[in-house]
Design a protein around this nucleic acid. Structure first.
Lengths: 136, 136
DNA sequence: TTACATGCAAACTGTTTGCAAATAT
DNA sequence: ATATTTGCAAACAGTTTGCATGTAA
C-alpha cells in the first residue's frame, strides 16, 4: 500500500531532511507504488505531468539527498544519465538494452559464486549485477 | 609479450580501421602490456607523457571505434567518466571505491546462479558483475 | 527569527561534432 | 586521386552551484 502523507514526512525527518513541499511531492511519486527506477529527467517530467511544480535543479538535489540518506540507491548504467532505484535492498537488475529500461530481478536466490580472494585490506561494499538483455 | 608493430597494424586492418600513426600509438599503449582499464583522459595523459601527440578528440574517437570494432569493451561505473577495458572476454570486475580503480577478477570460475526466467522475447547479451570494495 | 531549501541562470565536466588541413591507400 | 582521419574549437548533454528569495521550525 502507498505510504500515507504523514508516513512520508516521518521518513524524511528520520533521514534528517525537512519535509518541504517539493520533497514530499517527489517522495510521493517515488514511494507511492512499488519499486521504481527513475532518472532526474523522468522524475521531473512526472512531477510536471502531475502539476507538482519542482525545478529540475531541485530534482537533482533531492535525488542526491535521498541517495545520501539511504532512501534511494544509484544504479550504474553506462551512458551519461544516472538512474536511481527506490529498492535499496540487495538485489540485481535486468537492463533492456533496446528500451534503455531497468527491471529488478525479483529473486533473492540469485548469487555470485566463485569469487577469488579479495585484494588485501578490502571488503565487499556491495555487488552489482546487471544482466543485459537483447531483443531476440 | 607485447605485440609487434606489424601485429598491431594487422589487428587494426582486420577491424576495418586504417593504421594511422595516432591509432598505432594508442593501440601500442593499450595492447602493449596485459589487460588495462583506461579512460579517455588517462589514455590521453599517457600519450602525452610518452611524447605521442594525439588530440583528446582523437582519443575519444579512437576509443569508440576500437570498442565498436570489438577491440575494447566499455565498463559501466557510475559517474560521468567512461572506462574501457582491453580484455574483451567474458569476465567480471572489482572496483576499488577509494581509488576509483577497476581490477579484473582473474577467474573463469565466477558464475551467477539463480536467475529467474528472462522477460519474454529477450536473450542475454552479457552479464556485468561489479564487486565494489571498500577499504577495511 | 534563523537556518535551511528552492529556483533560476550561469558554470562545469565529459563527450561529440563540423570543417579545413593532413594522411593512407 | 580519393576517401578517410585528424585537430581544433565550438556545440552538446547531463549535472552542479552561487545567490537572492521563500519556507520550515
Amino acid at each position: 500500500m502507498p505510504p500515507a502523507t504523514g508516513e512520508i514526512a516521518k521518513k524524511l525527518r528520520g533521514a534528517g531532511l525537512r519535509p518541504t513541499r517539493q520533497r514530499l511531492d517527489l517522495a510521493g511519486l517515488l514511494f507511492a507504488s512499488g519499486d521504481r527506477h527513475v532518472s532526474a529527467e523522468s522524475l521531473h517530467g512526472e512531477a510536471q505531468a502531475a502539476r507538482l511544480p519542482v525545478s529540475l535543479a531541485t530534482v537533482y538535489n533531492t535525488l542526491n539527498q535521498f541517495t545520501a540518506a539511504g532512501l534511494l540507491r544509484e544504479v550504474a548504467i553506462e551512458g551519461n544519465r544516472s538512474y536511481f532505484d527506490t529498492n535499496t535492498s540487495n538485489h540485481f537488475h535486468y537492463f533492456l538494452e533496446d528500451k534503455g529500461q531497468l527491471v529488478d530481478i525479483g529473486s533473492e536466490r540469485v548469487e555470485v559464486f566463485g569469487l577469488p580472494a579479495l585484494p588485501e585490506g578490502t571488503r565487499i561494499d556491495r555487488i552489482d549485477v546487471i544482466v543485459r538483455l537483447k531483443r531476440g
